[in-house]
Simulated assay, not measured.
Amino acid sequence: MRVTVLAGGVGGARFVRGLRAALEGSDAEITVVINTGDDLWLSGVRLQPDIDSILYALAGVNDTERGWGRAGETERVSAELREWGSGWPWFTLGDLDLGTHLARTGWLREGLTYSQIAGRLGSRWPIGVRLLPMTDTEVDTQVVVEDGARMHFQEWWTRHRATLPARAFENPGIEAAVPAPGVVEAITAADVVVLAPSNPVVSIGPILTVPGIREALAEATRVVGISPIVGGKVVRGMADACLTAIGVETSAVAVARHYGRRADGGVLDTWLVAQEDADLAPALAADGWDVRVGPLWMSDLEHSAALARAAITL
C-alpha cells in the first residue's frame, strides 16, 4: 500500500507518527509532502520548521511538552545571539535544533536542493517515512495585516501570537515554483492521499498553491481529508485566526467547503469529522459529500494510530 500525506505543523507530525504505527509490520510506503511556507532565513541560517517538526517527531527526539524543537534542549547560542543583537530576540533557537539548521545551510551552500537535504536529514534516524518538501523554491509565507504592512508569517505567529488582524497570506514567487522531485509521482501513484489535520490556510494552503499539485490531486486514486476543527474549535494553535482572515468560518463544514469536493473542482473525495461535529455531517451529505464521523483527538500514539487507520481504510 502506498500512502501520501500532505502535512505541516504539530498536527501533521502527530498524524504521520500515528500512520507509521498503524502500518507497522506491513509493506506500506509512506511519503509526506511537507509545507515549506513557514521557512525563513534567520541569523544567516535556513530554518524549515515544519520539516524539522515532522522529522523530530518520527525520530522520537522532539520536545513533547513544548510541541516543537528537540527534547533536552539548551539555548546558550540563542542567548549569545541576543547579546549581539542578531536575529529575533523573541524567536529562540535551541542548540540542538541550530545544529540541524547549520547542517542544512552548509549543504545549501554546497549546491544541494531542499529535497536532497530532506533525504539526508531523514537518513539520520530510521524514521520509515520519505520526507519531501512541497517545492525546492523558497516561497516563505508573508502576512498582510490591517494597515497594509507585511511581515514574515513567523513574526505574526510567534511574536504577535496571531493577534494582529490579517488581511491576506501570500507566498511571493510561488506562481513560478514547481513541485519538488517526486511530489507529483507520490500523489498520483498513491493508493490514498491524506490531507492531515494541519492548518488549512498556512500549512495545507501553500502546498495546494504550488502549481501542479492540485492537478496531481485531480489524478489521485483517492483523497481523504481530516478536519482540524473539533467541536467548532481548532485543536491546537491559532488556525482560527487564519481562517477568519480568509473569510472561512471555524467549523468542520466550512473547512470542507474551503477545500472542496473533487467532483466540483476541489481536492477531496472523503471528509472525516469529529464525533463532536456529527450533527454537521448531514449538511455536507446533502450536498453530495462522502462525510464520515470518528474520534479525531490525537492525545497519544494509540489514538493517532487509530485515526490514521480510519483515514486510510475509508
Rank of each mutant, 00 (worst) to 15 (best):
R2S: 04
R2I: 03
R2H: 04
V3M: 08
T4R: 11
G9R: 03
V10R: 14
A13Q: 06
F15N: 01
G18C: 10
R20A: 04
E24A: 10
I30G: 01
T31K: 08
V32D: 02
V33R: 05
N35S: 06
N35I: 05
T36D: 01
W41K: 09
L42P: 10
L42S: 09
S43Q: 11
G44K: 12
R46T: 11
L47W: 13
L47F: 13
P49I: 05
I51S: 03
D52I: 11
I54C: 03
Y56P: 06
E65L: 15
R66P: 11
W68V: 15
A71N: 09
V77K: 11
S78C: 14
E80K: 15
E80P: 04
E83L: 12
S86V: 15
S86W: 15
P89F: 06
W90F: 13
L93K: 06
G94H: 00
D95W: 07
L102V: 14
L102K: 04
A103D: 12
R109G: 12
R109C: 09
L112Y: 11
T113N: 02
Q116M: 09
I117F: 00
R120M: 13
L121D: 06
S123W: 04
R124L: 14
W125Y: 13
P133F: 10
D136W: 10
Q142V: 15
V143H: 05
V145E: 00
A149D: 04
A149E: 05
W156S: 01
H160K: 11
A162R: 07
L164W: 13
R167W: 08
N171A: 00
P172T: 01
I174E: 03
I174F: 07
E175W: 09
A176N: 12
A176Y: 07
P181F: 06
G182E: 00
E185T: 07
V194D: 01
P200I: 01
V202I: 13
L208W: 10
V210I: 14
E215A: 15
A218G: 02
E219T: 07
R222F: 06
P228L: 07
I229E: 00
G231M: 07
K233N: 14
R236T: 10
C242N: 00
C242Y: 00
T244A: 14
I246V: 15
G247D: 04
V248W: 06
E249F: 01
A252R: 03
V255A: 03
R257T: 02
Y259T: 04
Y259Q: 05
G266C: 03
L268P: 06
L268E: 02
L272M: 13
L272T: 00
V273H: 02
V273P: 08
D277Y: 03
A278G: 00
G288M: 11
D290T: 12
P295S: 00
L296K: 04
W297P: 14
W297T: 15
M298V: 00
E302R: 14
H303A: 15
R309A: 08
I312V: 15
I312D: 00
T313A: 10
L314E: 09
L314I: 15
